[in-house]
Write a protein that binds this DNA or RNA. Structure first.
Lengths: 346, 346
DNA sequence: GGGTGGGATTGAAATGTTTCAAGGTTGGTG
DNA sequence: CACCAACCTTGAAACATTTCAATCCCACCC
């Protein structure tokens, strides 16, 4: 097959039709309804396509069809493997539906997020999945108003105005702290922030609730705020933790996500603390790197791929099913106990 | 502004023109050459656009223009943060050129890679950046033959038939092993595979070269093959390493990438080995998680973002500059020494 | 007052694909 | 031999945008 496009222009159905000696309607039939065209003709057309190196022009197809054959996922932080796994889940579902998936990364920046969305709307994607920087921002709300199918991932809808998929973060916080209490810890740090992030608020809320239910004094659940959910913030929280007077120093820490936990773990090891004996650590998300840490991290698992697959399923339903009703899919988090909380204290 | 699309159809330039009482050519001018239209008219048209919630249909624009305003990067392994950082670099360059970036992930599977490429060609993206599973595979070679600007990332072009961007992997291997020799190690493992991956071959080649130059016996550079460049393969290599008879057991390991190194580190810590005293470890890539490990990893740094930015620059040059000549951009890797090789041996 | 120049606007053509009603061909049957 | 059905193929219209030559209008100058 000669892949040289003659005279610079990519060959079109028209060229194929001419080469095969058929009308362009027939070429289109070969492409879209091969059953309807006779074997001889089909083979002739296919040969012509191969000879010319014909490739369908997706924009023309899209223009005619009115919609693209693609979904999009705008993720919050490409540096966090958690979102990657979610994207993987979405991709498998998209593949099953024979759709492309555009993966965008807002890196936590609202203006970048808005720009991505603008482009996606211009592309007429079939639906948008998003883990937003701020779910109440104008450009997020507009997506729904525009009538574009969309699903919020890792964040529940407040008003039910759209589908969403998330884990029960309050429950996740409860599970983590209950595990620590269970292991004999009586002074625990919650590492996480900023509070503008809903997940952080809810995980803390769950932690506080179970702490109170066990009758533990408020002041023994110590909040170490961070400015982001990153490894380096975890390290810095570790420094602050080490700086606390011995009698106030927690014996365990529950981190709002695994990156923080990894940072905290690193600081602890560097500072010569034994994990879990001197400091037990629980993370959240259960990313692969949590299990891969030098001291494997206990973590609250989210069904990451499942989250993605479900989100894709919902957005496709909204896109294709006229009777679609918005759905808030909530998953139950599960504790995965590993060495970082390994022993019962005292 | 009312975002309701009337009667289900998204408003077009025609609708805007009608609403503003101008011709559709004028609307197009407002969109593309605002200077050419009078202030009064322009404002009237802009008002109409806002009222109708008009959004440009990118497929129509693209059809007319013949090319899309997008680049694409097909990465080899979305689970490896290294590729993420490369993608970040590409994205910044794409943003500067006001182009979108489609990020695809082949997950090391050739058929998925081919499918992605198919779609991208159909979309008429301006250029394709790719870290291929196999640089010699037919569907890779075809991209160039089709006349689509493309750049190979993290892999040099053998024949100069296209641009490429990579680090000098042989040199990287040399640097790593020289560092270990320098630290007093006389028996060293090379952990990595499969040999079908060019980077692995070249890093090993560099390691062997410097080993020989220092006059060390061949058999004291022990190759522990792996089936992939993953954390779990690193762990399993650790087991095999621990299983070696004491007198043959290396005191240091050079891993073909950081994921392997992290897995090896984890196994070592679990097995009660002290790092670096019992086993020193060097990784490759210097991903953020390398620095974040419990024992911070010594690693051979690649300028990840820079790699991406350069690749994007090259593909844009090929796309826009008629005098473009293919270029092989080679970067120099640098050793980042951390605790995992911290001490001089004996 | 007629002509001129120039800025603003227009309308038609073109992009590549899909769809669909209509037309054509073939072979078989009564 | 005429008719019919089944099967294929065709051609024109439609999708939303951009471009560009042509036109229009107005003010200004001679």
């Amino acid at each position: 097959m000669t892949l040289q496009p003659r005279n610079g222009r990519a060959p079109s159905v028209k060229d194929v039709a001419a080469a095969a000696g058929v009308s362009l309607g027939t070429v289109s039939n070969v492409l879209n309804r091969p059953a309807v065209v006779s074997t001889a003709t089909r083979e002739r057309v296919e040969r012509a396509m191969a000879d010319l190196g014909f490739v369908r022009n997706e924009s023309a197809r899209q223009l005619r069809a009115g919609t693209s054959r693609a979904l999009a996922y705008v993720m919050l932080d490409g540096g966090n493997p958690f979102f990657h796994d979610v994207a993987e889940g979405i991709e498998t579902a998209a593949e099953d539906a024979d759709l492309s998936l555009f993966v965008c990364n807002s890196s936590g920046r609202p203006e970048r997020e808005a720009k991505h969305i603008d482009r996606l709307v211009q592309q007429r994607v079939q639906g948008i999945l998003i883990t937003p920087v701020d779910p109440d921002a104008g450009h997020i709300v507009e997506i729904g108003q525009r009538g574009i199918p969309f699903v919020m991932v890792d964040r529940l809808s407040r008003d039910g105005g759209h589908c969403s998929v998330a884990v029960d973060d309050v429950l996740g916080g409860r599970i983590a702290v209950e595990h620590l209490i269970d292991r004999g810890h009586r002074r625990v740090a919650f590492v996480g922030g900023p509070p503008s992030i809903g997940q952080v608020r809810e995980r803390l809320q769950g932690a506080r609730a179970v702490w109170a239910e066990f009758g533990m004094p408020d002041e023994d659940l110590i909040h170490l705020p961070t400015e982001a959910l990153t490894v380096s913030e975890g390290r810095s929280a570790g420094e602050r933790l080490a700086g606390l007077p011995t009698r106030r120093r927690p014996t365990a820490a529950f981190c709002a996500n695994d990156l923080l936990a990894l940072g905290l773990l690193q600081h602890a090891v560097t500072a010569g603390l034994r994990v879990p004996d001197d400091l037990a650590i629980v993370g959240f998300d259960d990313i692969d790197f949590a299990a891969a840490a030098a001291v494997p991290l206990t973590s609250v698992r989210q069904p990451r791929q499942e989250l993605g697959r479900t989100a894709a399923r919902l957005v496709l339903d909204e896109a294709t099913n006229p009777d679609h009703v918005h759905e808030q899919a909530t998953f139950v988090p599960a504790l995965v106990a590993r060495a970082s909380t390994g022993t019962v204290r005292r």
